[in-house]
């Protein structure tokens, strides 16, 4: 199962004192289920804001956001948290692993939201780590891993609940070229072999080439 994404007339504004600061203006966007799209654009163009709206981390000021058939623009905090737990896996530029947990425990974390027994959680975490090529690193702490390996643990954590949609915000931004290529290869594998819908924000044209489609955002307007 993968997710389709539909954005209609999405606007996002922030208040800065008395002034209103528009970030996104009337964005319409369609991402078919199973697609791998890259979002590019200069800093401040609204890429991360758009990603946050798709991931259910924020709500639009106006407009509609529908992901996997669920209109999420009007959901409350609790419902949005449930939505993220069931449908979205997120990969960050800085990995955001919990430093005191092993790779397996980090990957196991999202499974705490379900009712799986401990042994099953462990098994699924190990499976996710195997998918990203980290068998044998289950008990390593993040500080004992390279940057590329840490990002792969983060990807394993993002997919361990088998989400429809994987959101990646500059996933190769902190990695060397070789590690970045490995991570992008992994995203392609997730997209093509497991059918995950992937939306990735990147500054790197080489990284964007890994996607099927590249969309550009400039001053809050999707090209």
């Amino acid at each position: 199962m993968s997710a389709s994404i539909e954005l209609r007339g999405v606007c996002k504004e922030y208040l800065r004192g008395a002034a209103t600061l528009p970030i996104l203006e009337g964005v319409d966007m369609d991402v078919p289920a199973g697609a791998f799209q890259a979002l590019m654009g200069p800093s401040g163009s609204g890429k991360s804001t758009l990603l946050n709206l798709i991931a259910g981390l924020d709500r639009p000021t106006r407009g509609q956001v529908t992901v996997a058939g669920t209109p999420i623009h009007g959901l409350g905090d609790g419902a949005l948290a449930d939505f993220r737990a069931r449908h979205v896996g997120i990969v960050f530029q800085a990995y955001n692993l919990i430093p005191v947990l092993t790779a397996r425990e980090n990957v196991e974390l999202p499974l705490l939201l379900g009712s799986l027994p401990r042994a099953e959680r462990r098994k699924r975490a190990e499976t996710a780590l195997r998918i990203v090529g980290l068998e044998g690193r289950y008990d390593h702490l993040p500080r004992q891993l390279s940057g590329g390996q840490e990002q792969r643990v983060a990807i394993a954590r993002a997919i361990v609940c088998d989400p429809d949609l994987v959101i990646a915000d500059e996933p190769t931004g902190d990695l060397d070229k070789k590690s970045a290529e490995e991570v992008l290869l992994l995203f392609r594998k997730l997209n093509r072999e497991l059918g995950k819908t992937i939306v990735m924000v990147t500054h790197d044209p080489a990284a964007a080439e890994a996607a099927d489609t590249v969309r550009r955002l400039d001053k809050g307007v999707l090209q």
Partner: peptide, 14 residues
């Protein structure tokens, strides 16, 4: 705070 935000992004509630 980064880690707590990360947990909430996974779907953990406030």
């Amino acid at each position: 705070s980064r880690e707590y935000a990360s947990l909430r992004s996974m779907g953990f509630s406030r």
